[in-house]
């Protein structure tokens, strides 16, 4: 469904991705793990079209999308929940969700999806007319995921959804990611520092170090890999 081939990207003189290749198959949960500054967020931003790919190709649904505008990638069914959630702080919860549906014109479908989001996250329905910036961290994460779902994604890119959240809330978020994947058939590309939790729900995993993929494989195998256990799981 999504394929990166030798993608090089960066900011100014800094090269953040030194030719990475990876593949996401339809229906799966793929995770990309790595330390701070490894290039995880840059990978997602390059896929979305915010950061330009200097070399290499990105294929999504058989179309090359490197250096396509985010408007185009969102239209094609790629939706990202960026690191730090990026809720529009002064828009209400409802308006934040409206923004997720910005490119859609099907009023009925939007209404239905909005209801689905409220079913999935009942707390958001109660906070509907509250400003996004006043929500707690966990609620903001839920809103960010719900907003991304409002674009009707085929592939959901999630950047560190567990960041700064309490363990109980993290568990809740991961359960919902699983549900979105299993029950709604949305393919998930999950970027995480929390390697243990990410690998437990993922089908496959990639390890990113200093802008290069150093390891790839089935999530279950990676969980047992002794290097990974030492470096990322702290066991």
């Amino acid at each position: 469904m999504l394929k990166l081939k030798n993608v090089v990207a960066g900011y100014g003189n800094i090269v953040a991705l030194r030719g990475i290749s990876l593949e996401v198959n339809e229906g799966e949960i793929i995770t990309l793990i790595g330390a701070n500054g490894a290039g995880k967020s840059t990978t997602l931003m390059t896929i979305s079209g915010i950061v330009a790919a200097r070399e290499g190709t990105i294929t999504f649904l058989d179309q090359e999308i490197q250096n396509k505008s985010p408007e185009t990638t969102v239209k094609m069914g790629l939706s990202q929940v960026p690191e730090g959630r990026h809720i529009f702080p002064q828009l209400t919860v409802q308006e934040n969700l409206d923004m997720g549906a910005f490119l859609r014109r099907d009023a009925d479908g939007i209404k239905k999806d909005m209801q689905n989001c409220f079913d999935l996250f009942p707390i958001l329905a109660r906070r509907r007319s509250q400003a996004g910036g006043t929500l707690s961290g966990g609620e903001q994460q839920m809103l960010a995921v719900a907003r991304a779902l409002m674009t009707r994604p085929k592939l959901l890119l999630l950047d560190e959804p567990s960041m700064g959240l309490a363990p109980l809330v993290i568990k809740q978020i991961f359960d919902i990611i699983k549900e979105i994947n299993r029950e709604r058939g949305v393919t998930v590309f999950l970027v995480e520092q929390n390697a243990n939790q990410a690998l437990q729900i993922a089908d496959c995993g990639y390890v990113l170090e200093n802008g290069t993929i150093t390891l790839a494989g089935k999530a279950q195998d990676l969980l047992k890999n002794s290097d990974i256990r030492k470096a990322y799981l702290g066991i």
Binding site: S48, I50, S69, P70, E71, V74, K75, S79, Q80, P82, H86, I87, F88, P89, Q90, L91, E95, D98, M99, G100, F102, L103, R147, T151
Partner: peptide, 23 residues
């Protein structure tokens, strides 16, 4: 209006506005 909401969204967080597909 749709444009008005997008204007507020862009003012508050431009990167995120791009990520939901706002031109």
């Amino acid at each position: 209006t749709r444009t008005g909401k997008a204007m507020r969204a862009t003012a508050q967080d431009r990167t995120m506005a791009e990520l939901v597909g706002i031109n």
